[in-house]
Structure formats: C-alpha cells, structure tokens
Design a protein around this nucleic acid. Structure first.
Length: 822
RNA sequence: GCCGGAGUGGCGGAAUGGUAGACGCGGCGGUCUCAAAAACCGUUGGGGGGUGACUCUCGUGUCGGUUCGAAUCCGACCUUCGGCACCA
C-alpha cells in the first residue's frame, strides 16, 4: 500500500478524538506546562502559526512519551479591532465574525494533528473569561495600580483609539501603521512603572530566555541612575527639580532648560520681555508629532525665559531657558546644562553663546574651555568644584549626592524610560472597563457581584470607528452602586493586551466560576515551563505578562515570580527571502500543504529546514524532499514489517552489518533525544533519522535474502517511536503495521543502549603538525601508545614523516593522533 | 551613537577546540521503461596532477593573535539584521 496521508491523517485524528487523547493529566510527579502563544482569530492559519504549533507539538508528544504530565492548551486572543472593522465593512457582528474564525482555525489546527487539550480552551471575548479580566482591572484599581489621568497620549486616527507607548513603532500604529498623533486626553493607565525596577532586576532569573529578548526589555525599561537636584528660582519661592545622571558635573552647570510642557513655565516667563518668544517656541514645539520631535534631524532651539535659578552648591545665578528638545515625560522635564561635559549641551551652548565651564580634567592634560571643540565625556578628576576638586569623578558623583542630601538640596534617584501602560481604548470589541460615574458620588468601581459588565449585542456600527457604546442608552445608564441615583458607565474598553496578560493562568483552571483561577490549581502548573512564540512580542506581550504576574505574586495569588521560565522565540517564515504577504503574492497556506502532501510532511519540512529560532525560507522543493523521505520510511516499514513480524525464525547471531545497522538506530535515538531535550534542534534530529533510514536501505539492498529478523524488528520499532513526535499520523500507522496495539504516542520513549553504540573498530585520523595525513581503522579503546604505534605504520604518514623528528604526539582516544614534527 | 545577533558549497543548513560542508534541495551519471514520471544506485566545495586505486593544494567575511590543532577562543576591522536613541 502506498503512503497516503490523505487517508491516514483523518483516520488517526478521528481515533485520537474518539479516544479522548490529549486530555491533561493532573498531579503526578513530573509536570510540564508547555505553551504556544495563542493566536488572534483572523480566520486563517498562516505559516507562522504552523511553525509555532509544529514546534510545540513535537515537544508535547516527546515529553509525554518521556513520562511528563504535560499541560498543552490552546485558546483565542479574541478581542480586537479587526473584528470591529469587519463589522463596519461587512455588516456582520464582531462576535459572529470572531466565532466563525475560531471554528475555521480550530479545524485547521486539528488537521495539523496538534495535540491540544481542547477541554481547556479559553476565548478572551467570552463573558466567562472577560468577567475575570474585568475583575483583574478592579483588583488593580483596588491596589492603586489603575488610575485615570489626563495626559499627552498617542492617538491613531485610522483605528480611532489611543495606543500604549509599546504599541507605537517608529511613530506609527503597531496594527495599521498610521502615523500616531499626540493628544491630551483623559485615559486609564496601569502603573507598570511601579514595577520597573523589578522588571529589570528579575531578567536575571530568566536564563532560559534568549539574550536578545532580555536585552530588548532592558533597553525598553531603560534604567538610569543619577540624582534629582532642586534649584531654587531667583526672587521666588519656587524650586525646580532636575534629574541628571551626572551629579559629578554639578559645578559646571551654566544654564537650565525646561520642556515646553513644563508646568512652571507660565509663572517663570510671565511678564518678562521674552514672553512672546517663549510662547512662540512652546506653541511650535507642542504642535510637532512625537516622531518629528524625537528625530535626530530636529534643530535644537532654546529661548531665555527671563528667569534665573541658583545652583545650590555654588549659589551662582544661571539662566533658565525653554527648549524644544526637552521631554516632559522623562525625569522632571527639566535638565541642567553642562556644556563642557555633554555633547548636546556643548552644541547648544555654542549656538547660544552660553558659558562653558570645565569641571572634569583628563588625567594628564588641562582643558581650556575657550579652545574646546567638543565636550569632554571621559573619566577624569574634578576641578573647579570646591571641596570636591581632586576627586575621581565617579567617586565625586556619590560624594556630591551625599552632600546634597545632607543639605536637603537633592538626593540620589533612578529614572526609567518606561511609562505607565495606557489601557483604555475607544472601541467596542473589548472588555468594558468596569467603572461607573455618578454625579453625586464620583467615580466608582462596579461591585464584583455585578461582573461581568456585558458588552451589549444590539449595537450599530458607524464608519469612522466611534464606539457604539457611547450612544447605547441601555449600556450607558446604570444605577449608582453607592447612592442609587442615575449614573453612567465608562464606555472605554480595555487594551486586548490585558486579556492576553493572564490567559496562561486561566488555562490551569479554565472552568472556575468563582475565581479567575484558584491558587492551588495554578500553583500546580505555573510557571509555564516552555513558552513559544514570535519575537514581535519581545516587549509588548512579554513585558505586560511579566508585570501582571508580579502584581498577582505580590497579592499572594500565585507562587510564580515570573510567568515563563523558558522562552523560545521562533523565527519568521519567509519565501524567496521576503516575508509572506498578499501584496507580494508569495503566500503559501498550511491548507494547500496539507492537501498536497499531508500535515506530517508540512510539519517535518518546517522543522527540518532551519533551527527554530532562525528565519526559515519556504521552499517547495524542500517540502517535496520531506514528502519523499516519509514515503521512503513508509515503504521500508510496510515492505519489511512482515519479515520483522515473522515468527519461528531460527536464532542466528547478527553479523557485522546487522550490528552496524543496530548501532546506527541507537545512535539516531540518542541524537534525537538529545537534540529535542537539550537544544530544540529538530533539524539535526530529523537528519539523524534520515541517516539511519538511508543505512537501513543499504543493509536491505545488501542482504536482501538474508536479513536479520530480530535486528530489523528492533530498528523498525525504534524508527516508528522516534519519528512519532514529528510525523504523528505516520507514526501511528507504522506502529500499527508493525503489529502493535494501542497508540504509539502512549508508548514510553525508548532508551538507547550505550553498549550497542560502542563499535569494535573506529576510524582515526593521523595529523602531522595539525594537517590530516592519513586515516586508519583501529580497534576501539586502544591506549595512547598503541594508537601512536599504529599511526606510525600508515604508509602515507611514513612518507610524510621522512627524515623528520617527532617531538611530541597529541592523542585523542578513538579519534586522532597528531604528530608534532620538525 | 550605544547594545545585541549573524556572516560556512549553487541553495537551506551541519560541525561550538580534534576528519569542515552531516542531512536535505539542486546538478551530473546510471538502473528500470517503447518513452516519461515515480522509485532505486552512484557522484557532487574550488584549483592542480595521475589511465587508475589515488594524490597535492586552497578554502568557513577581512587582518592579526593564542594553541600540537581554530568555522569554533581572543583582539581589531568590514558587511548585514534587530533593539534603543536629543531619555539629560
């Protein structure tokens, strides 16, 4: 019978489904929580999905055979804008659209033969899930980690909603690419900045994460150590706090610059003759988009406000300016200018003729401010710095902080680049923020007993994207939970990244009607042992999920300090060197591949073509190669199963080539085991199986009439077992053909026999001065002296050695002899 | 500018101090066939020598270093990808 994936794949899928395979086994000694990032239900699986699921499924099946209780769930990140846009365009309700898509994608996942426990499926747009998303919001609110504030925020005109900082990429919306504009709006935030320190510090715990992801998070959080120094304003009682990373240069301050949005600006510049100029600069600066404002091409501008402040340590008057390059959102929105020791300040001071004062001197040179052509940034010794003069600048920084603190003028401070997480969205298809506004009582949380705040279904969508909730009386009108009078609901919904920041907890206890999850059940599985997903979430999802987990940990709701112990960031699937996209016309869908070659072939190719963390180039020829290999495997098993199964064959000791065959399969088994377990190098694992299969064909061709039955039976069995995680359907078919009952996936992973791996003879190389000069076969396990003696008998070696003296021999047992000669 | 990754045949990739190019794709030659496809067998880094079993030589981005021995370790540089970037 030919290899027919179109027949066997549905057959085994049905078998698994009917026999309740892949239901999670709770308890037990060895737990393993294996998770692939759940998808947004766009309606169609793409190759990226197929890749993550294939990787995950190999691990799930392998670990199960290794005796682990594996939790391997799947679900849907089901709230989000595309559903709503589809609703506007095609007059279909977002819920309908979403659930239809889920059904379609689930069917595709099943056709791939992925071993999910579907009884734990979670769908974030289902009320029994988002009830707990809302509960979490209230939980944050109750812990003062959710707040509403008017702020300059990122607005995407295309999506008609605000975005978090993490969701703006190069000035554009992460979803649609539209240029983001800055607006002053009242919005909801989660206080992720409270956790900045721990989010950075705990990256140390994540040794199972790729370094590049850790570095990306570290850059994003952006920790800077320095000091906050308060300058008093001349003639007023005001204090101007300034953040600096260079307190050691405090004696070199010659001016201060404030951000255009600085709250004290009006007071400082008001009435001064420069007021008009200040207003002009402020107006022009505030009009700029964030992109333009942070562009390196922007020309630095500054205007004197008319006010002066006093350097606390010198009492000296320095001018206060307003500048277009100072950011209100970082530090205190005010910076001190030390032109002698900061590149930007130097440039700025030259432009506006501000004084330059040297306070750090290089070890063996004297700087002259008037002659400097660039700022001096390196280490050195303080000069012109009162009693700190003569100190090494690093030490002086600490000393100055201590001095400021003692005098009450400032203190050491750490600043982060990270901003609070803006979570409100002005769209319909998300979890409603459970807040009520009452004219009498103000802002109130929805009582827990009233959760979930249901999204109304009878809504009308309008072009332009305005949320239908804003016009929906039945939704809007609510009784105040405190005084009972008429009140209104919050109409903003939550960022969908909140839904996906806790779903891995829900999987551990998916049906819990009383809690988001129970501590007992989640502790049994958390943290996720292995998380797999795309690098595009290196900051977004992975940072938010870490934050949320830490908040839950602090509240005693989980034992997990970090949600994901190990992370595999899989590479993209490209074609012809470019990302698959409709516009390029280079899209290959998993459906086509399943139809043409079967899921096993597709999975095998995707795992074989590249190591998982690297980008993979889709290549139809390569797919055919994998198809050919599976056919070859099937022919081998199908063609020789009867011989392997034959009984009453007289026992004969295996000859040399039968032993070599056996060795090859035990070696493949070892290689597959190590490659999956230790390095996720599925590509080399598969190549090891291919090598063994090639050898089996060689053996059969050589021995056609005289095949060693027991050895053949053993190697075919190993073959079925080690191929099963990669090609689960064919694995079952082979297992059955070999006369076994039950599923191959329920078998224990075989153990290789180290004794079988030992060959009688080994090939060694003989090098002379590191160059290969001969190869010879010697008995394995020979001693160093004997190896050297053997090496000296090789003809080529003798020839190459002619007339030279052997000074030294380096010997690696069973591998190599290197003769050092002169 | 700062930080991190990657550079190996015609292509995807293997080898993380010990035989460079496993395995696969593609190419070439053959078997089977009326023929083709499929399948199977052999061969395949560049250059040179030999009728031949073979053999010499160069070769892992570049240049240097460490070592008996380097794709692998160290230093400098080049190219490329990614993150951050007027963050004080």
């Amino acid at each position: 019978m030919d290899y027919s994936p179109g027949v066997i794949e549905p057959k085994w899928q049905k078998y698994w489904e009917e026999h309740g395979f892949y239901k999670t086994v709770e308890g037990g000694e060895k737990k393993y929580y294996l998770l692939e990032m759940f998808p947004y239900p766009s309606g169609k699986l793409h190759m990226g999905h197929m890749r993550v699921y294939s990787i995950g499924d190999v691990l799930a099946r392998f670990l199960t055979m290794r005796g682990y209780n594996v939790l391997h769930p799947m679900g849907w990140d089901a709230f989000g804008l595309p559903a709503e846009n589809a609703a506007i365009e095609h007059q279909v309700h977002p819920a309908q659209w979403t659930y239809d898509n889920i059904a379609a994608m689930k069917k595709q996942q099943k056709a791939l033969g992925i071993s999910y426990d579907w009884e734990r499926e979670v769908t974030t747009c289902a009320p029994d899930y988002y009830k707990w998303t809302q509960w979490l919001f209230l939980f944050f609110y109750g812990r003062n980690l959710a707040y509403k504030k008017k702020a300059a925020v990122n607005w995407c005109p295309q999506c008609a909603t605000v975005l978090a900082n993490e969701q703006v990429e190069e000035g554009g919306c992460w979803r649609c690419g539209e240029i983001v504009v800055v607006k002053d709006l009242e919005q909801w935030f989660l206080k992720i900045t409270d956790y900045a320190e721990r989010l950075i510090a705990d990256l140390r715990l994540l040794s199972g994460w790729p370094e590049r992801v850790r570095v990306m998070q570290e850059n994003w959080i952006g920790k800077s150590e320095g000091a906050e120094i308060r300058f008093s304003v001349k003639g007023k009682t005001l204090k101007l706090p300034v953040f600096t990373t260079r307190p050691d240069t405090l004696y070199g301050v010659t001016y201060l610059v404030l951000a255009a949005e600085h709250p004290l600006l009006d007071e400082l510049a008001g009435g001064a003759e420069q007021e008009a100029a200040v207003r002009d600069l402020v107006a022009r600066t505030r009009k700029l988009t964030d992109v333009a404002r942070s562009s390196t091409e922007m020309v630095k501008e500054g205007v004197f406000t008319g006010a002066y402040c006093l350097n606390p340590v010198t009492g000296e008057e320095v001018p206060i300016l307003v500048g277009n390059y100072v950011l209100m959102g970082y530090g205190t929105g005010a910076v001190m200018g030390v032109p002698a020791h900061d590149e930007r300040d130097f440039e700025f001071a030259k432009k506006y003729n501000l004084p330059i004062r040297v306070v750090i001197s290089p070890p063996d040179d004297i700087l002259n401010a008037a002659e400097m052509t660039e700022a001096y940034l390196a280490q050195g010794v303080l000069v012109n710095s009162a009693h700190f003069t003569g100190m090494a600048n690093k030490k002086a920084g600490q000393a100055i902080i201590a001095y400021l603190k003692e005098k009450g003028w400032g203190e050491g401070k750490i600043s982060f680049r990270l901003r609070d997480w803006l979570i409100s969205r002005q769209r319909y298809w998300g979890a409603p923020i459970p807040i009520i506004y009452c004219d009498a009582c103000g802002m109130l949380p929805v009582p827990e007993k009233d959760l979930p705040v249901l999204l109304p279904e009878n809504v009308v969508f309008k072009a332009g994207g305005q949320s239908p909730l804003k016009q929906h009386a039945a939704f809007l009108d609510v009784e105040c939970p405190s005084c009972g009078s008429d009140a209104r609901r919050e109409t903003d919904t939550m960022d969908t990244f909140i839904c996906s920041s806790w779903y891995f907890f829900r999987y551990t206890d998916p049906k819990n009607a009383e809690q988001a999850f129970s501590r007992e059940k989640s502790d049994a599985w958390m943290p996720v042992d292995q998380y797999i997903g795309g690098i595009e979430h290196a900051i977004l999802h992975l940072l938010y999920a870490r934050f949320l987990t830490k908040v839950l940990y602090d509240a005693g709701l989980t034992q997990a300090v970090e949600p994901f112990s190990r992370l595999l960031a899989q590479g993209m699937v490209n074609k012809d060197g470019a990302k698959m996209s409709k516009s390029k016309g280079n899209v290959v869908s998993p459906d086509e591949i399943i139809k043409k070659y079967g899921a096993d072939t597709g999975r095998l190719f995707i795992l074989f073509a590249a190591p998982p963390e690297k980008d993979l180039d889709w290549n139809e020829r390569g797919v055919e190669g994998c198809y050919r290999f599976l056919k070859r495997v099937w022919r081998l098993v199908d063609g020789y199963a009867d011989i392997a199964r034959a009984e009453n064959v007289e026992f004969a000791a295996p000859d040399e080539s039968a032993l070599a065959l056996r060795r090859a399969f035990h070696l493949a088994l070892k290689k597959v085991t190590d490659d999956i377990e230790q390095r996720f190098n599925f590509n080399t694992a598969i190549s090891a199986v291919m090598e063994a299969v090639n050898l089996a064909y060689g053996y059969i061709n050589e021995k056609e009439a005289d095949i060693h039955r027991a050895v053949l039976a053993e190697v075919l069995e190993i073959l079925a077992l080690i191929l099963a995680p990669f090609a689960p359907h064919l694995g079952e078919e082979m297992w059955a053909r070999l006369g076994n009952n039950g599923s191959v996936h329920l078998q224990a992973w075989p153990e290789y026999d180290p004794k079988v791996l030992q060959a009688e003879n080994v090939e060694i190389v003989v090098q002379i001065n590191g160059k290969v000069r001969g190869r010879l076969i010697i008995p394995a396990g020979l001693g160093a002296a004997a190896m050297q003696a053997k090496a000296l008998t090789d003809e080529r070696v003798v020839l190459a050695l002619a007339g030279q003296q052997v000074l030294k021999a380096v010997i690696v047992p069973d591998k190599l002899v290197n003769l050092v000669v002169r």
